[in-house]
């Protein structure tokens, strides 16, 4: 489909047992293409906010929003797809089996990508990245092309609507 793309939803839900299972179950049960889902409590501890990324066409996305809206535990659905927002994903990249030259190169990469080197060993280095998911993808691609032993852990994006300017 031509209108297949990544779309973003912020979801306010009751902070209760089973709600995450219910929301994620909707995506698996109806074969929606879930890219990432993060969840945490808000300033009101009885409410959690999820940031959800799905790949879908327009019609399916409308259906997803309606299905979410109709859940009793869902308080509010916000479509973030075309909203100016701040969005970051935390990612750790550990590169092992490297020599001094590789390390120096990794420090330069860290500088260019604006990520922190937070730990280091004789033959390894740990990067901590707070980038957009897309930028994280680019960093992973670069690391994969240069180094053989990398391990990645990433948290999925969290997003909040901007106050003034639109940046992602």
């Amino acid at each position: 489909m031509s209108d297949m793309k990544n779309r973003w939803i912020a979801l306010y839900v009751e902070n209760q047992i089973g709600v995450l299972a219910k929301v994620s179950g909707l995506f698996s049960g109806k074969s929606y293409n879930l890219q990432s889902l993060t969840v945490g409590t808000t300033e009101d501890e009885s409410i959690s906010r999820m940031t959800i990324c799905v790949t879908s066409d327009d019609i399916t996305f409308e259906q997803i929003k309606k299905q979410l809206n109709r859940m009793v535990e869902v308080i509010k659905v916000i479509d973030l797809t075309d909203v100016p927002l701040h969005m970051k994903e935390i990612l750790y990249a550990k590169v092992t089996g490297i020599d001094a030259e590789d390390k120096a190169e990794l420090f330069r990469i860290a500088q260019v990508f604006s990520v922190d080197v937070v730990d280091i060993g004789n033959d390894s280095i740990l990067l901590e990245c707070k980038l957009t998911s897309r930028r994280n993808n680019e960093l992973i691609a670069l690391l994969k092309s240069k180094y053989r032993h990398i391990s990645i852990v990433r948290g999925g994006a969290v997003a909040i609507e901007s106050i003034s300017t639109g940046c992602r």
Binding site: I17, G18, A21, K22, L26, V72
Partner: peptide, 16 residues
């Protein structure tokens, strides 16, 4: 049973 029936009920809940 709440897990089993989540997708086939309008609402399902355990009283805690």
């Amino acid at each position: 049973i709440v897990g089993i029936t989540r997708s086939i009920t309008k609402y399902s809940v355990t009283v805690r």
